[in-house]
Design a binder for these strands. Structure first.
Lengths: 341, 341
DNA sequence: ACTATGGTTGGAAACGTTTCGAAAACGAGG
DNA sequence: CCTCGTTTTCGAAACGTTTCCAACCATAGT
């Protein structure tokens, strides 16, 4: 249990102790087969004796890669991001990479900073969910990104790999289902149209009504933010004034807000209003009973992103960006009922 | 939008372009005041023209620090860890550090690997929740850790800073409250005694009974794992066989499992059984109504850990490890009722 | 005995930055 | 015009590895 001594032991110290050259020590570490057993054991015991551990700063500097990949999200409090990261981590670790996560707390500045920090030698690749899809600064930075990257659920006009979810189709299905139950006044609460999931969900929602030749309840569409607060606010005013017969809480944080309103006002689900959520979170699965939801396979999203990145990492040859789109599926819970009126 | 060219631009290229020395370029970057305005602008425009960006690999190698701190957890799917990390991040970022998170998925091996990777030059400091509190290998590695570190909610016989929660007191209070309501057959489900929170919670639970001169319902104590599955299993058998009048689900993942049982078996809360949870998660706040819970200030835990680490980071002088203990408080929800019998 | 041959080893260069001592440039005071 | 003290700049060394090339050493083949 020695104190942290000033200078640390270098490969040179080991070389001297084992009376071999630095090159040999290095090779003993990285290609043990290329050094004679006798020499190897001399080196090994010197390493042991001195307690030498290679300085990864220097290693990273010399070999031009870090064997780490970054995962950038706006809010790790979102269980979806956490699950995705875990899936990514599993694949990456298996292939010898150390994955780590950076939380930007949203904000174009923070996202830019995160990209910057990863940019030059902190990570070999990056998987990210960028919120400032439109921010010119961010876009520029992404364009100039020199390491392989994969975007999650975002589509930007750049040559970058992406793993997407078919939100439009999923939403159309869900809306369709509600319409089939006789609902017409269906409210949709979701994220802003400036970011892909919001845009696509609104599109699917609208398409479902159009397919049936029905008027789109445009006044019931609230698409501005994925936050719990937004969900709370919009659900409050909707339930108070517009009285929809069904609500689609499209975003797992939004669901938290919506459920808060439902709980506070003792709204009965599905008695007073039908409810559809997105993604299997603890809350959606457990609430009073399981909520009907638009689900997707988060694990697969993570794995797909990881593999996409690994491909790029492996072969340095250029190839056009890939966009892989994964489906959703509707899981029926107990939160929807036919309209009685 | 230039293609990734083979060799990248170095400080030497800039020096040549601006016809100054490398030293001057370096100083223009790091201490602009020490270079004449005329020279500075020459250098700046050369940098601009060439699109030079310093290679942080080399910077890290040269200056001996990375300005990053690692945050190690076993499961980032746990909302508590996520919240703690966010709090840590906020403080650290403010002070110029880039925090990042590593998920070990539990397992002594993975934890050891994470520590190893941070160890040498990946991070300047580390905040962690180590599950293998007893694992000799892990312990050894922690003892040899050469960078400042803070342990969260873990106490090991080593000279390491730690931020702890007063689980025992919190649990004693909660148990006390239930006893006051007339409960005697109180079940406790929590993590293993080999890890601090489990150990302390059991202690507090036992103390509460002893204080009242009551027999401890030892058969109702289930302390082995903090997982949702464990919560589910134990709640199932408890409700089926032992019929407690109250359950304390001490651990937010455990709560998920317990609620699953409650939902599936249509157990009425607090009609059939009273329930106390730990920590303000979405689920605990919203379930059917807010659950009575043993709460703690996660933000403060994160901030405290961050500050502890910053202190060590700032002054390199040795000082004995600090252990800071933070309180819990009981928040009354609607999940507890007096026993009627 | 002498030369190929193939596996090992030594030593130095390189990676891109920061830093340090010395040299140069500058401005002011005599 | 010279000297002195301050700023500013130069150039090289250093950080701890990896990697490359040349040198070395056996052994086997002739």
């Amino acid at each position: 249990m020695k104190k942290a001594t000033g200078r640390s032991i270098t490969i040179r110290d080991v070389a001297r102790a084992a009376s071999v050259s630095v090159g040999t020590v290095s090779r003993s570490l990285n290609a043990p087969d290329s050094v004679r057993p006798a020499t190897l054991s001399k080196v090994r015991s010197a390493i042991e004796a001195l307690g030498f551990r290679p300085d990864s700063r220097a290693q990273i500097m010399r070999r031009r890669h870090t064997m780490t990949v970054g995962f950038v999200v706006d809010d790790i409090g979102n269980p979806l991001h956490a699950a995705t990261f875990k899936a990514v981590s599993a694949v990456m670790r298996e292939r010898g990479f150390s994955p780590y996560l950076v939380n930007t707390s949203g904000g174009a500045d923070n996202e830019a900073a995160a990209i910057d920090m990863l940019q030059h030698g902190r990570a070999d690749g990056v998987i990210m969910t960028i919120n400032s899809e439109q921010d010119p600064g961010t876009l520029k930075r992404l364009a100039e990104l020199r390491i392989p990257s994969v975007l999650l659920d975002r589509a930007i006009p750049l040559d970058i790999d992406a793993v997407l979810t078919d939100h439009a189709i999923g939403m159309r299905q869900a809306t369709d289902y509600l319409i089939g139950l006789g609902h017409r006044r269906i409210a949709l609460i979701t994220g802003g149209r400036d970011i892909r999931p919001g845009r696509e969900r609104v599109r699917g929602f609208v398409e479902a009504f159009q397919k049936h030749g029905l008027d789109v309840p445009a006044d019931l569409i609230r698409a501005q933010s994925l936050s719990a607060d937004y969900g709370f606010r919009e659900a409050s005013t909707l339930l108070q004034r517009e009285k929809p017969t069904a609500i689609i809480a499209a975003g797992n944080r939004i669901l938290v807000g919506v459920l808060r309103v439902i709980q506070q006002n003792r709204v009965s689900i599905p008695g007073d209003v039908s409810l559809i959520a997105c993604d299997q979170t603890d809350l959606a699965l457990l609430y009073p009973g399981p909520i009907t939801l638009i689900d997707r396979d988060i694990e697969e999203i993570g794995r797909t992103a990881a593999h996409l990145l690994l491909e790029r990492l492996a072969s340095s040859e250029e190839r056009p960006a890939q966009r892989i789109s994964l489906p959703t599926r509707l899981i029926l819970g107990g939160s929807c009922a036919p309209v009685t009126a």
